[in-house]
Design a binder for these strands. Structure first.
Lengths: 339, 339
DNA sequence: ACTGCGGATGGAAACGATTACAAGATCGTT
DNA sequence: AACGATCTTGTAATCGTTTCCATCCGCAGT
């Protein structure tokens, strides 16, 4: 283990040139072939590698991008992160991952911290969008791409999906396959996604001309599978659905468990539809019909958008919407063939 | 959006003190209460935040730790990452995540890159451990903690598990519950984990005095669920197991699917045991018995070990082994009650 | 032979902080 | 009133690069 890192100065001395020339020789400035050769040889001999920190300080870029996620336990965010990591590292950037809690304060802390300049940009998917968070987002000196819906009038780079419409797809599909009593198993409605799904459900039911009873829609305390089980239990004690639309694949898995434990068969007695189309949906038994919100795609787009923004800090904020898509699997097969 | 970040110099001027005093006032050096107040006020007014890059250059620390993972799609690594992120961020460090491919070259590139000094330490879990990789690991100027087995004689900070013994637990459990024909569904055997599991299987069978037929053990091309399905198919065409030990939960899920599609019931006809005890095992139907290798725990320990090492760069390399634990679920219930 | 020109080079000034050192202020003690 | 001890403060060096600028060289054109 060599005791300490060689600096550019030492390389330069070793090669018999000035630091300036050494720098140019290594990073492709104007330098004679002879110098380049000598410097490269010296660098190799000493095992020199450029110091990222010093370089960053000088050039004003860190080559790092940050991804802030509420919960690394959620497969959706993991899928997104994977896609982002791919794009980002292909562009020569590193990815810093931070897990903010679900609380807006953590998010604000993170955005503030970002102004320390440890990253050149941020991708964030706020789960609760308070005015305070919005304010902080706009004030940031570092480019930010927001994944998820934004209040009207906020012009930040943004990639979103239409989960309201996604719920609509699910409800329509269930209605078409002959389900009469479609229930909603939602996550907390004080969150951005929770609100969107609720709206989607009500709109879709209205469009079908169906009334919605209070007991027909229930909210879990969280987007996790445990919370899903609890909420599904209360749903089933107050209502008798033949189909459940869930705000999330995790919730859907929880619901399927509860159904099974009550002796109800999926899809014969009750159809279940999840949302996000994570790996879980594919692996579940029976296979879980799920509304894909294109997590990987959103991640990919967000990353590209951010890189793009780094190239042009003055262009107008752009917004991309990824359309939801229903992925059919066994959990929502019709009770009997539809004529 | 303020046009450009205020520097400490500007804060100092604003507060009517020298940069040195300003620095001390903000970072808790010796400074009079009056100065502290004035500087803090000025900093607040200008919206000053310290520049992480400049600070890092001076103090020689980046407050970043890196985690290199072969495949962000594998739930084991995600669990590990989550645990690591928790420890690391609680200690005031940021986490840089890089996904090396499965190839040793990528890993080497990553370790080299680390010498640029963008992180103060690295946690890495190499899946294929070539001499070249080992050499690179020891040469690194940045502290490294290796998660997974190391060749004998390599003294690096290391946290490992005993998956050989883990497979033993699984085999013993199945034998005790009356299974006669126990097969192994392994991952690639040119990987560190693959080799360990193979060894574990052979040892355990020998200990039971059972012969192992060639067709009784099969290797998937990958630790994924698709590869698991393919490998399970070939296994079933050449052998008729009443129990399958899988190197991985993903492989186990693949196997369960194939079994089901062939009309075989789990656990009545064939018992299945997975490994890693990921969320999937809990969510699978039937619940998947799985050998826990303590991913979160290993992540937590690795992170703590690394932080520890940063505190004392001269202490001897330490090694911790996390013992495997069998988590019983429905997929390996005995065919009929064991007397 | 002189001028002009382009490319290669070295000196030195940044980037934005921290910190060693010395000098100045403040206080109590004799 | 003088002294030393203690606490604050400012000056300047430093971390390791990149890059502006001026110099210098060789070479072609006249």
């Amino acid at each position: 283990m060599p005791p300490s890192r060689p600096t550019l100065t030492e390389v330069a001395r070793h090669a018999g040139v000035s630091v300036a020339s050494a720098s140019r020789a290594l990073s492709g400035g104007s330098a004679s072939p002879a110098t380049v050769a000598r410097v490269q040889k010296a660098a190799a001999q000493l095992g020199y590698v450029v110091d990222a920190t010093a370089r960053s300080l000088k050039v004003g870029r860190t080559e790092q991008l940050a991804f802030a996620v509420a919960d690394l336990g959620n497969p959706v965010y993991v899928a997104m992160m994977r896609a982002i990591e791919g794009v980002v590292s292909a562009a020569g950037f590193r990815l810093v991952v931070s897990s903010t809690g679900a609380s807006p304060d953590d998010e604000i802390g993170l955005i503030r911290g970002l102004n320390q300049g440890y990253a050149d940009g941020l991708i964030v998917s706020p789960i609760r969008m308070t005015d305070h968070v919005v304010a902080e987002l706009r004030q940031s000196r570092v480019p930010i791409v927001v994944v998820g819906s934004l209040p009207a009038g906020v012009d930040l780079d943004n990639v979103r999906t239409n989960s309201t419409r996604g719920v609509g797809l699910a409800v329509a599909h269930l209605a078409e396959s002959g389900r009469r009593a479609v229930a909603l198993l939602n996550g907390p409605t004080d969150t951005v996604p929770g609100r969107a799904r609720e709206r989607g459900f009500l709109q879709a039911m209205r469009a079908l001309g169906r009334k919605v009873a209070t007991a027909q829609s229930v909210t879990a305390t969280d987007f996790t599978h445990d919370a899903g089980e609890k909420a599904a239990s209360t749903l089933l004690t107050h209502y008798e659905p033949d189909a459940i639309v869930c705000a999330n694949d995790l919730l859907a898995i929880g619901a399927m468990r509860v159904l099974r434990s009550r002796g109800l068969n999926v899809p014969e007695d009750v159809a279940v539809v999840g949302m996000d189309d994570t790996d879980l949906a594919e692996l579940a038994v029976p296979g879980l019909t799920s509304v894909s919100l294109g997590s990987e795609e959103r991640g990919r787009i967000a990353a590209t958008m951010l890189l793009d923004r780094l190239g042009d800090r003055t262009r107008a904020a752009s917004r991309v919407t990824v359309q939801p898509k229903l992925v059919l699997r066994a959990s929502s097969a019709p009770k009997r063939p539809v004529r």
